[in-house]
Simulated assay, not measured.
Amino acid sequence: MNDAIKGNILTPGGWIHGAVTFGTRVADIQGAAADPKGNADDYILPGFIDLHVHGGAGKDVMEGGDAIHRIAAIHARHGTTSLLATTMTAPPEDIDVALAAIGKAVKERGRNEARVLGAHLEGPYINAGKLGAQPNYARAATLAEVQRLETLAPLRVITVAPEIAGHLGLVRELANEGMRVQIGHTLGSYDDGVAALEHGASGFTHLFNAMSGLHHREPGMVGAALAHAQFAELIPDLLHVHPGAIKTALRAIPRLYCVTDSTAATGMPDGEYMLGRHTVHKCMGGVRLPDGTLAGSTLTLDQALRNLVGLGLDLADASARVSTHAADYLGLEDRGRISPGAWSDFVVLDRELKLKAVYIEGERCDLNDA
């Protein structure tokens, strides 16, 4: 038997004032095209999709075991209906433990949990000179090693510093295997970025952060992204990236999408938490290493949506940047949109953009569930 919810429904064709009926997938949408400004009803948007999640609820992806289920649950309570569990640069045995747990979670979504789509392998194939908050276990990649890791969990996204010897050719090999290769944690030049894109790289990891910056005579990796990227991820917590830089990226990169880069500190009080093998400190609204380096965030995607609207984006555009563009980046035609046949992943927001309900694959989540 199908359920139904009513309100201002954001569809691929625009706003519909009416009702969406659904089971695990969308059955039908009935109503008429209408500007939501003409009524006071709730907004019904596609569920949020986060492609860069390290933790939440006191748990870190690198712990392995059941940590991923706690993480998926806390993010579901903030409107994230699917996500990529993201690893840290670490010794091989740590990465194996994390990926084994992610692989299991992909097959076993628990009640009130976001769907784990696979892994984002953020390390260890990065530049040791641009670690950011990554522990210093950076090393060069080999195709054989990545293929072995792929047997543990689906590697949907992999971050690579293209200037490392051997990595440019690897970018093409990984892209040919269907992975989304992102440029990140890199000291590479503008030319390195252009070359990586030409070899099949398709995005940039937390744009502006942990990469060579833009200068008018040395455009750097940021310049390559702004000049050539179709997709890139960005952390819109208003701490990692200045609002002016966010607006620059929004104008330059057609399908810029937002991620949280969230840590174990997400949803937790101030204090110490683990981020891979690092101890990080949550205080004053941020997460930092002892030396003050930003170390992920406590952002959730419902707040990211509100931040984008606060910067001047209309709600439909902001919604696409926390949902649809990320789905498109992964090639998922049945997520990130409300249309017949798509997964029934929705968020219901009031007129102040506060979350009222979350549906994941047709199941209404208990937003009070810990």
Score class of each variant (00 low, 15 high):
residue 283 C to E: 10
residue 32 A to F: 02
residue 272 E to F: 03
residue 41 D to R: 15
residue 288 R to G: 00
residue 7 G to Q: 14
residue 77 R to N: 14
residue 236 P to L: 01
residue 187 L to C: 10
residue 13 G to E: 09
residue 83 L to T: 02
residue 50 D to Y: 09
residue 51 L to P: 09
residue 22 F to R: 04
residue 203 G to C: 01
residue 16 I to T: 13
residue 87 T to I: 13
residue 229 A to K: 06
residue 51 L to K: 06
residue 31 G to T: 09
residue 331 G to R: 13
residue 216 H to W: 05
residue 218 E to M: 08
residue 125 Y to P: 02
residue 54 H to F: 13
residue 97 V to K: 14
residue 133 A to C: 05
residue 310 G to K: 08
residue 18 G to S: 12
residue 238 L to A: 09
residue 21 T to I: 01
residue 253 I to L: 04
residue 100 A to F: 04
residue 26 V to K: 00
residue 236 P to A: 08
residue 200 G to I: 03
residue 76 A to V: 10
residue 1 M to E: 09
residue 63 E to F: 02
residue 227 A to F: 11
residue 80 T to D: 01
residue 131 L to F: 10
residue 155 L to G: 10
residue 35 D to R: 03
residue 43 Y to C: 01
residue 170 L to P: 06
residue 39 N to H: 14
residue 10 L to M: 07
residue 159 T to R: 12
residue 202 S to Y: 00
residue 310 G to T: 07
residue 134 Q to F: 13
residue 157 V to N: 03
residue 216 H to T: 06
residue 174 L to W: 02
residue 122 E to H: 12
residue 93 E to A: 15
residue 45 L to W: 06
residue 201 A to M: 04
residue 367 L to P: 10
residue 259 V to C: 12
residue 229 A to Q: 05
residue 245 A to C: 05
residue 40 A to K: 07
residue 304 A to V: 03
residue 340 P to N: 10
residue 78 H to G: 12
residue 254 P to M: 13
residue 274 M to R: 15
residue 335 R to M: 03
residue 370 A to R: 14
residue 18 G to I: 04
residue 119 A to C: 13
residue 20 V to Q: 03
residue 291 D to F: 10
residue 335 R to K: 07
residue 139 R to I: 05
residue 43 Y to W: 01
residue 357 A to R: 11
residue 162 P to T: 11
residue 272 E to C: 02
residue 86 T to K: 07
residue 322 V to G: 06
residue 173 E to Y: 04
residue 263 T to K: 07
residue 358 V to K: 03
residue 244 G to P: 05
residue 310 G to N: 07
